[in-house]
Write a protein that binds this DNA or RNA. Structure first.
Lengths: 333, 333
DNA sequence: TTGTACGCGTTATCAC
DNA sequence: GTGATAACGCGTACAA
């Protein structure tokens, strides 16, 4: 079942069939109707491989993420796929894990699959050492590379980021304004996004004239139980804190469980702010005040930018989107 | 940059290059080394479209799910992609939403993309009315259809399911044995998986000689807050219950929040069992006893079965995997 | 062990 | 407005 069968049955050439297929206006209405009827009758579908061979594109985008079961990334993938599809593109998903070597390997793999672009979801792809990013720059020589909530400068590389720094700055400032003096910042990673959040925290303290004490900045695995234990051990250390800002809801959820267990009242004795406005912020009791990092907007913008790149438009290499502070029960502002 | 360039530079024919490419043993070591060197030097990658055109396969599997940001499905997608890739297959992701019409549309779309098989993740694809499933049966005439935690009988259709019925039966029986008399069952949907769970509940009551009261079987949106409100309204109705079995952790999490708010002690006054052993079971306080539906095993088995189908092996059209009851803090067994 | 020639199903470029 | 034909790049009989 191919274009020849259709052309034969419709008494036209394959060129005409192809024209009908691709909406070329240079076909008479009569011929078009005839061809369409035959296609319908034969249940003909064009072969995407042959088409890909000629056009050298399959209208397919590679999406890379470290772990599609991560709450944030799962949402990102959902929105990316949805928006790509509504633009007529398929998404090939590729979960790379966290090691540089496998990330590079999968990157090459996607390139060799002739995807039309690669979207890097999450801030885990840009490495600290510039030379560890050359594989991305190399790929950008061939196809557009889109970063969702990550930033890398380079030709044919486009970033859409959330203004994490401003968001954390705002949250910390709010806490300080409402009387908190001992803010604890807990974070999971030092990625692009992670270091921006931390910077926002530092700036807020500085602008409020509060001291920046290293023991009030702690790292923790992205794990509710691990976070809970961290807070208990901090308490044991004798560290006093009246507010927690977490770089991820899971850590904030751990803080809630810690406070509930230790008999510390929220938000009277301890205020807590999470990040990502995930399902965990609704599952926690009391519910988490959390920073909404606007995944959907980030993804939609990324896809729109990509479409702009395809159509040769002049698109910004970097777009920043403001976060939202969602107030719930773990803060009194 | 194609196979001709390589053959020219290596002074061999394209056939030889092709043989090297595909690991054909009929090439002398010397020639092979020469060709490989040239490939390396030119940075040559075979064109997948041309290859796909000849072989009529791109080693790509379509994964369909209703919503990739759903906790359960996000995990399923992760494992499916991982296992497919380790078998040398790519995964095209397709989130269909919940409407039959769009599901059908995306199904056709994937078929027209000439994927080698379609994996249906989650039990939301098999409809109650048999005629609403004909689109799946039709597709199965062309390519294998794999169901993850859903069941449909038909040629070239393979199901891997979790024994939900036995799992709920066991949980309910345990609750009854430990002295509970008024078990409330809350569920989200009446899919294949959903009706099995319910049947397990009914059987447990029957085998224990307890009455089956319709007011003790309630439906609720998959939403923590909605669930919490449901329990409050049931209490207001005057319904008494000493145990809750939920078809999803989100409903169980709602039950925990209800009990905490209403001052009901867990598990002394109210025992709660969730389903899926998701992150919510760890976020709840106390942590949820939950049924682990073994997503990873389900996915691995699905992919293995699919590989069996491809290699022409005799594979079972239906595989059942036992669930695990993970005991935590919301039950006293 | 190696090479030649054709088929795969499109799209695009001509000529008419 | 339509038709013939040449790419597109690879796999693979078949021949040597």
């Amino acid at each position: 079942m191919n274009i020849y069968d259709v052309s034969k049955k419709a008494n036209v050439s394959i060129a005409t069939v192809s024209r009908v297929l691709n909406g070329n206006p240079n076909v008479s209405d009569k011929t078009r109707a005839k061809v369409l009827a035959v296609m319908e009758q034969l249940g003909y579908t064009p072969n995407v491989f042959a088409r890909g061979l000629g056009l050298n594109t399959m209208r397919t985008i590679g999406i890379m993420c470290s772990d599609s079961s991560d709450l944030y990334l799962a949402n990102a993938i959902y929105y990316l796929e949805r928006d790509l599809r509504s633009n007529g593109y398929d998404a090939i998903l590729c979960c790379t894990g966290y090691e540089l070597e496998t990330k590079q390997k999968y990157f090459d793999l996607l390139c060799s699959k002739r995807v039309d672009a690669i979207i890097l979801a999450g801030s885990k792809f840009v490495e600290m050492k510039p030379r560890d990013n050359t594989y991305i720059l190399d790929a950008a020589a061939k196809i557009p590379i889109m970063l969702v909530n990550g930033y890398l400068e380079g030709e044919n590389i486009y970033s859409t980021v959330c203004d994490d720094q401003a968001a954390v700055y705002q949250a910390a400032s709010r806490l300080i304004q409402s009387g908190h003096k001992k803010l604890l910042y807990v974070y999971t990673s030092t990625s692009y996004s992670g270091s921006n959040k931390l910077q926002g925290f530092k700036n807020a303290l500085a602008d409020a004239g509060l001291p920046l004490l290293p023991e009030y900045i702690r790292q923790c695995r992205k794990d509710i139980t691990a976070a809970k234990e961290l807070f208990f051990s901090l308490k044991k250390e004798g560290l006093e804190f009246d507010a927690v800002i977490a770089s991820d809801d899971s850590l904030a959820a751990g803080a809630v469980k810690y406070a509930n267990t230790a008999g510390i009242s929220i938000p009277e004795e301890l205020s807590i702010v999470g990040y990502n406005n995930s399902i965990l912020s609704l599952c926690s009791d009391p519910e988490l005040t959390s920073i909404d990092s606007k995944v959907e907007a980030l993804c939609t913008t990324t896809v729109n930018t990509l479409m702009g790149v395809f159509s040769g438009g002049n698109v910004p290499s970097r777009t920043t989107i403001a976060a939202d502070l969602i107030k719930r029960e773990t803060t009194n502002f």
